[in-house]
Design a protein around this nucleic acid. Sequence first.
DNA 1: ACTCAGAATTTGATCGATCAAATAGCACGG
DNA 2: CCGTGCTATTTGATCGATCAAATTCTGAGT
Lengths: 368, 368
Amino acid sequence: MGSLPTVDDVAKAAAVSRQTVSNVLNSPQIVKPDTRDRVTAAIAELGYRPNLSARRLRTQSSATIGVRLDPLRNGISGAVLDRFVHALAERADARSMRVLLFTAESPELEIEQILRMRDAADADAFVLTGTFFEDPRTEALIEADIPFVSFGRPWGIDDMEDPSHLWVDIDGRAGVYDATIAMLDSGSTDIVWVGWSEASATGDDRRRGWEDAMRERLGCTEQQLAESRIESLDDVAQASAAVTARLSSRPAPTGMVCASDTLALGAMIAVSSAGIRDLPIVGFDNTPVAGAVGMSSVEQPLDLVASSALELLLGPTGNRIVSRSVDAGASHRLIRPALVERRPNHLPLYGTTEEAAHAAGNHRKESR
Amino acid sequence: MGSLPTVDDVAKAAAVSRQTVSNVLNSPQIVKPDTRDRVTAAIAELGYRPNLSARRLRTQSSATIGVRLDPLRNGISGAVLDRFVHALAERADARSMRVLLFTAESPELEIEQILRMRDAADADAFVLTGTFFEDPRTEALIEADIPFVSFGRPWGIDDMEDPSHLWVDIDGRAGVYDATIAMLDSGSTDIVWVGWSEASATGDDRRRGWEDAMRERLGCTEQQLAESRIESLDDVAQASAAVTARLSSRPAPTGMVCASDTLALGAMIAVSSAGIRDLPIVGFDNTPVAGAVGMSSVEQPLDLVASSALELLLGPTGNRIVSRSVDAGASHRLIRPALVERRPNHLPLYGTTEEAAHAAGNHRKESR
DNA sequence: ACTCAGAATTTGATCGATCAAATAGCACGG
DNA sequence: CCGTGCTATTTGATCGATCAAATTCTGAGT
């Protein structure tokens, strides 16, 4: 029950030298098959596992990806990042890499922290989440030549095509476009947009999807579009109030496309309160809330985002950071989210028991 | 812009030796104040940061805590673990430790993975989440003398008092007890329990809180308690159906306490569907869904769970694993969750716009 | 002044791997 | 038979820190 086996132990057991053992592990192709097998056997025999700290000290790399976790936030959509981290950990594991979490109070401190972690070989690549307008992080990391990929496209700073900035993002526009088209196809014509009152790149992007669909299918004018918008902070109660106000001042629309599930839930409550039934509403993020109340929503395929991020960083299969891609076309991915359609069954919230039972059957089916 | 400063660089700058620099970092008290200041200044001057890989290699420890992430699950409560991991990362950061995520398909593979990570000094302590009946992990880790703390008390295997098993858990019984008492205090008398149909230690524990409160306040008999229980799988639609069935066969209760927010939401929908108003319902986990629909819920203070877990592992302040506590009393923590009371405003789901506006005001206030 | 314990500091060795350079093995043509 | 060019393997040095032991410094007591 002594200490763990080291390369030397394996070397002794296989009657070769340290370095040969190391080679078997890191560049098997340069070792003669005979010896390789002998070493492999010894490794299995002794249950040898390389000490990663030692390896990192020597190689200055860690097979670890760092991700900053935001301070805990509440709210319906707050968990999207957590889900992404979860997906990233699973994908990284498949490449025998690990995910290291850290925190930072501000973008500036995050940069500092990343530099340190890089220096200490704690992590050799990073995933930035939630890029924003004039985000200082991307430039700083490119400057310091630290490998990273961002979940979120560059908004405004560098060229979207800049091959030195790897990024993956959700094509919010396309997602909302698809959702709007689907709603139009099922008969709605007067579809309003429920968006965020605070300006945000993400919000604008999503709204554009609705605008494009409405212009394309119905030939809406800017004027008409502007009048079909409802805006609110990302809060259920405020959204509910905003939609309620709208409903009391104008004829009810025949559909609502929302920038988030939070807004959508608020809209749903307002619509129910106004006694309107069968008004399709679609949210964004497909959070558990959407599933719970039976609301359609645009789902971000976070698993795909995670695997794409790793592909950009590491190539299709590897687990070592490759030099930054020079192929501009391959330096970013815009992922089209998928619409998760649910029967607009806000009915049970105020409907009959019979309808509730129906909805129950519907839901059971969906959860497969 | 050469390589990074090392202990030697700092030593040279401060005109002392390597070891003194090391001492300033690790045992400041044994260094004379003068020298300490000089070294500290040099560290700041050069922007020195110790290389963690080197430190780990030497000390055989990594200042890192490993946590296994379950495969992605959906559902309302699925994010509780993600939230816990989030809280843990923040707390660990405050002690300059990090959280390393990994995945494993089964408890057995998790054990294997943990052993490897321990051997490689990848992590020097682990947090197990979701302990279950006859969990093989705890015994295996105790056997291998690997420091760990579990989020979840031991169910059935070893003695709850066993000082070699550190654990933190939420006192579900107490949380539900408090919720039930609060409901009784506000006038309800006939309170039913909506629980899980599948047997689970957690479910039994939570139910016990309701039972205790009902016995204590109303002197309920076992018979009465058994008749006041509704059971369902943890699914909104199924819970809704189960509660609907109950409502149609017996007089409506005056309150409902539920084992989860999912069940509670189902109950809420059923109650609304039946046209019943102002029936208090309380859920468990205080997920975003509860906040969104304005439902009271018992909140697990995950932040406190995380900091308690670290305290058990590391002592009140340190950042090095201490030998396992021998003091049985200090080897576990049962944390009383807090009831988050919300105005039972499922009203807006089918109420008037005026009520919705009121609810909106209420919600806004709460979100501070 | 002189001794000596204890505090403060320095020196040499080490953690376990990989890198770089040196050496050994091996086939082939002149 | 020997040198040449490869391939396969080994040896010595190194990554950057901490540990353990050796050394130097300090100050109180006689």
